[in-house]
Design a binder for these strands. Structure first.
Length: 586
RNA sequence: GCGCCCGUAGCUCAGCUGGAUAGAGUACCGGCUUCCGAAGCCGGGUGUCACAGGUUCGAAUCCUGUCGGGCGCGCCA
């Protein structure tokens, strides 16, 4: 419908140009929008106002000329000029009826489109270090990333969902050391746990599994483990030096194979836990990309060499620096430390170069907002490598702060007293968590009200929408109980009997759904869908209270049943994209 | 100090890439069930769109500055 109006307006301008009423050298962008207020018709265009200057006449006069040149057919019953020069289009109510047939025919596919067909998009999200369970901050990235990916797929993009597994690097070594020390304690030794170690209970669990499977086989005297290790911070030393020293001692004592065994015990347990957690949360991936695989294939050293050969690397203080300031970063960055180890950034350059090499049209990274300072250096590196940094979109997700009983819930990763995603899911349920996480646009700080999310009341938007769905199902159950058949074809032919204002409202909003999807997908804004669904549910509940669907008038009844079934279908489709269930009963 | 994000009703937030009288939910008050689920519906009122300039037919929306809040500025990941 919208496209149709754009077309006839474009034709009208062309006609005016050939008649000499408009300068021929302008190519207007014709914009048609849904009106906010239906008193202004169904669609409106600001065309006359944008062209007024070029045409050298008043917007309203120009609007009149445009309307005179307009070929109105196909459902448009009235066109009028309003306000400063808007052209408003009024559609006959029967113009909206087709949407019901479309929805019932297309079912689960209604709203999907080919707008993004041919575009290959990669969405990388969560990618939390496998050093501990996912916490509520990761949950937002998970729900948001999954929704963005689903939306893009719904508009025809070929979407690749990926999790980047940081299975290499110092953080993982710290985890391995933490696991080993807990293991020693379970062997009966007394150790002073490092301030910088991972303190969570899950580390005990991993140590226990290791102890159960290996017995004392990996045990070394505590005195040897701590021999020559610099003092920890509580003892007046440096906690970083302390933990690095411990890692060094432990890997030496254990040897390559046994160290790898401890390391992998931690990695496998935690990554397995993360995968399970996400799966239960309804978040799935096409690929779990291993950071370690980059070093195994020399991708990191190759990248460094490419940068060196192209003159973007220099040496200073024993380290290798990437001159990212050449591309707008605020300072240069180290990629190889003076101890010879490559930095995390070096892996990330290789990883992003790898992504672009894979040929995606767009690469989307979803990061926590605390990593925002990282964006310029990654883009700089891609540019230095001769890639197009604009193919990479980094979406920054702001923090979610939990509230319980009006009080902020405190979180701290290292001390182990964080709130995990699993705890959140257990408390409020997957549906509420998925929905609440995407209710706000990603750059908005989020207050996550736990009490609201788990309340089974009308305050809770998830329940409100799900209830609308269940209510439609309930109507059809009632129908079956009364042994009445729903004659769909009869109903579709009788849609003209739907003349109530509530029905009109519902029809218009149902027809908006594809537009909402497209805009939400390309703008990466799943919150637009949550708002839309709430409005649609509201339209339905209002309609439900105002009119009876199961009436004696069979023609009217069948038509109304078509309408509410279409509503149910759209709610189900929308919730499905958000990863929220559409229940038949509640 | 520099950089990114945010500032709209008492509270939580929309505002469709510059449009018409700035909207929802919640809270508060009152009403609606012999009938399809009251987890619902209807009615009742609130705004210096943080502030000051600028751009134009037109600004909550775009630009600049100021103020306030969050986050980030490692040879950590």
């Amino acid at each position: 419908m919208k496209e149709h109006i754009v077309k006839i307006l474009t034709d009208a301008v062309t006609k005016l140009q050939s008649d000499g009423d408009l300068p021929g050298d302008i190519t207007p962008t014709v914009m048609v929008e849904r009106t906010r207020d239906r008193a202004h018709g169904d669609f409106a265009s600001n065309l006359a106002m944008t062209l007024a200057k070029a045409a050298r006449c008043k917007p309203r006069d120009l609007a009149e000329k445009i309307i005179a040149a307009l070929n109105t057919d196909g459902g448009i019953v009235k066109v009028e000029i309003a306000g400063p020069g808007f052209i408003n289009f009024y559609l006959g109510s029967d113009a909206w009826h087709n949407v019901v047939g479309d929805i019932l025919e297309q079912g689960d596919n209604y709203g999907r489109s080919e707008a993004g067909a041919g575009q290959r998009v990669q969405v990388e999200f969560v990618s939390a270090n496998p050093t501990g369970p996912l916490h509520v901050g990761h949950g937002r990235g998970a729900a948001y990333g999954a929704a963005v990916a689903s939306l893009l797929a719904a508009v025809g993009c070929t979407v690749h969902r990926e999790y980047y597994v940081n299975d290499a690097g110092r953080q993982m070594d710290i985890l391995a050391a933490s696991v080993y020390l807990r293991y020693l304690e379970l062997c009966g030794d007394t150790v002073i746990f490092p301030a910088n170690g991972y303190q969570g209970d899950y580390v005990w669990d991993i140590g226990a599994t290791l102890h159960r499977e290996s017995g004392d086989m990996l045990r070394h005297p505590v005195s040897e483990v701590f021999a020559g290790v610099p003092d920890d911070e509580p003892a007046g030393g440096d906690k970083e030096a302390h933990i690095d020293g411990l890692i060094e001692r432990i890997s030496t004592l254990l040897g390559t194979n046994n160290y790898r065994r401890v390391f992998d015990a931690g990695l496998d347990a935690i990554l397995g836990n993360i995968r399970q957690d996400l799966k239960e949360f309804g978040v799935t991936y096409d690929e779990w990309f291993s950071e370690r695989s980059l070093s195994d294939t020399n991708a990191v050293t190759d990248c460094i060499k490419r940068l060196q050969d192209s003159g973007h690397i220099y040496e200073q203080d024993g380290a290798l620096w990437f001159r990212s300031t050449d591309y707008g970063d605020e300072k240069d960055r180290v990629i190889v430390r003076d101890n010879g180890q490559t930095t995390y950034f070096a892996s990330d350059i290789a990883y992003h170069a790898n992504k672009l090499e894979r040929g995606y049209d767009r690469v989307i990274d979803i990061w926590g907002a605390d990593h925002h300072g990282y964006v310029p250096r990654v883009k700089a590196a891609l540019q230095a490598l001769g890639d197009d940094p604009d193919r990479l979109d980094v979406l920054l997700v702001q923090f979610a702060v939990l509230y319980r009983g009006g009080e902020k819930v405190q979180m701290s990763t290292r001390s182990g007293e964080f709130v995990t995603l699993r705890e959140l899911r257990n408390e409020v349920g997957n549906d509420a968590a998925r929905f609440f996480y995407v209710m706000r646009k990603c750059e908005q700080h989020m207050d996550f009200d736990l009490d609201l999310a788990k309340s089974q009341s009308n305050d809770n938007p998830v329940y409100y929408i799900q209830y609308a769905h269940a209510r439609v199902c309930s109507v059809f159950r009632q129908l079956a109980e009364k042994k009445i058949e729903w004659d769909k074809d009869c109903g579709l032919k009788a849609l003209g009997t739907l003349a109530e204002s509530h029905e009109d409202e519902l029809l218009v909003n149902l027809s908006r759904y594809p537009e909402v999807l497209e805009s939400a997908a390309f703008n990466h804004e799943p919150h637009a869908l949550t708002h839309y669904l709430r409005e649609l549910a509201n339209d339905f509940h209002t309609y439900y209270n105002a009119h009876t669907f199961i009436t004696d008038d069979a023609t009217l009844r069948n038509a109304r049943l078509c309408l509410i079934e279409a509503t149910r279908q759209v709610i189900a489709n929308g919730l499905q994209l958000l990863g929220v269930h559409a229940p038949d009963t509640m």
